[in-house]
C-alpha cells in the first residue's frame, strides 16, 4: 500500500479544511482499504471522520428517519427505532456483507462510495432519501451519478441520510455467493402517493425500475409484475451473472419484495 498521512479529526470544519484532490474521507474503510491494498486507489491524505460526534446516531420523527453518516451497519440493524419505523431498512443493514463488515462499515461510507452492487443506495432511492451534506441537501434521485460516482463535490461530506417512512416496504437481495455483494437487489417501498422500486447490482449505478413501478402503481400485487418485460440490454453482464439472468432476477426479487412488504 502506498504511504499517506492519516488524520483523525473531530469536526466537519476540520475535515473540509484538510480535504484536497488527493484525499479521501474514511468512514469505516470496508471498500477503501481493500482498494488501497490492491493498488487500485491511493491517496496522499486519509481523513478519518469517525470521531465527529455530530455524524453519529439515529433520529426518528413521525415522517422520517435520520441516520448519521458514521452510523455502523450493525447499529442500524439492531436499532429498535429503525426496526419499528422501516423494518426493511434494518433488515437490509443486517444483510450487508458479514458480521465484521457490519461492525465497521457505515451508511455514509457506503453511499459515498456508491458501489454498483452495494445495498444502501437502493434504500436511498426507494425510501426517497435526502442526503444532508456539509454544504447542502441532495435528493437521492440526484445523488447517485454512475459507478463509484456521486454528486458529492470535492471535500463535501455526508452528514446524515434522511429516509421517508413508507406505508410498507421490503428489500430482497440475491447475493453473489462469492463476494456476498448483491448480484441483484430490489427495494420496494409503497407510499400513499406512489410506489418506488429501486434496483441495485444490475446496472452501473442504482436506478428506479419504472416498468415495475408503473405496474405496481396500478395494482400493488406480485402478480402485477408478471406481465412486465425487463430488458436485459443495459444491464450488467459479468462473471457473476449475465444480463439476461439479472433481468430475470429483477422480476423474481421484485415479486418476492412485494409479497414480503410490511
Amino acid at each position: 500500500m502506498k504511504s499517506f498521512n492519516f488524520h483523525s479529526i473531530k469536526s466537519v470544519k476540520e475535515a473540509q479544511k484538510l480535504a484536497s484532490g488527493k484525499s479521501v474521507y474514511l468512514a469505516g474503510g470496508m471498500t477503501t482499504i481493500p482498494a488501497m491494498k490492491h493498488g487500485l486507489a491511493s491517496y496522499s491524505d486519509i481523513i478519518d471522520i469517525k470521531n465527529i460526534k455530530d455524524l453519529s446516531g439515529i433520529k426518528v420523527s413521525s415522517k422520517s428517519i435520520r441516520i448519521g453518516a458514521i452510523t455502523k451497519h450493525a447499529e442500524v440493524a439492531s436499532s429498535k427505532e429503525v426496526r419499528k419505523s422501516i423494518s426493511s431498512l434494518a433488515l437490509l443493514a443486517d444483510g450487508i456483507g458479514d458480521a465484521q463488515v457490519r461492525n465497521r462499515g457505515t451508511i455514509g461510507g457506503s453511499i459515498a462510495n456508491n458501489d454498483p452492487t452495494a445495498d444502501y443506495p437502493s434504500a436511498c432511492l426507494a425510501l426517497n432519501a435526502t442526503i444532508h451534506t456539509s454544504n447542502r441537501k441532495i435528493h437521492a434521485n440526484k445523488f447517485f451519478k454512475d459507478m463509484f460516482e456521486t454528486a458529492l463535490k470535492k471535500g463535501e461530506l455526508i452528514e446524515t441520510v434522511e429516509f421517508q417512512i413508507p406505508t410498507k416496504s421490503s428489500y430482497e437481495k440475491f447475493p453473489s455467493p462469492a463476494s456476498l455483494y448483491a448480484m441483484v437487489g430490489v427495494y420496494v417501498a409503497k407510499y400513499k402517493s406512489e410506489v418506488i422500486v429501486a434496483v441495485t447490482g444490475a446496472q452501473s449505478v442504482v436506478y428506479r425500475c419504472k416498468e415495475i413501478e408503473n405496474a405496481l402503481n396500478s395494482n400493488f400485487s406480485a402478480s402485477a409484475i408478471d406481465g412486465v418485460k425487463i430488458k436485459s440490454s443495459g444491464l450488467n453482464s459479468d462473471i457473476h451473472a449475465s444480463s439476461d439472468y439479472r433481468a430475470h432476477l429483477i422480476k423474481v426479487l421484485a415479486k418476492k419484495a412485494v409479497t414480503g412488504c410490511k
Binding site: S8, I33, V101, R104
Partner: peptide, 29 residues
Amino acid sequence: CDTSQCGACVVLVDGKSVKSCTLFAADID
C-alpha cells in the same frame, strides 16, 4: 486474504469483532 473476506484476522476491538487486515491501527488509537 487481501479482500477482507476470509476472516482469519478477526480480533475484538472494544468488544466487537472486526477484520484486523481492513483497519488502520491509527484509526483505533
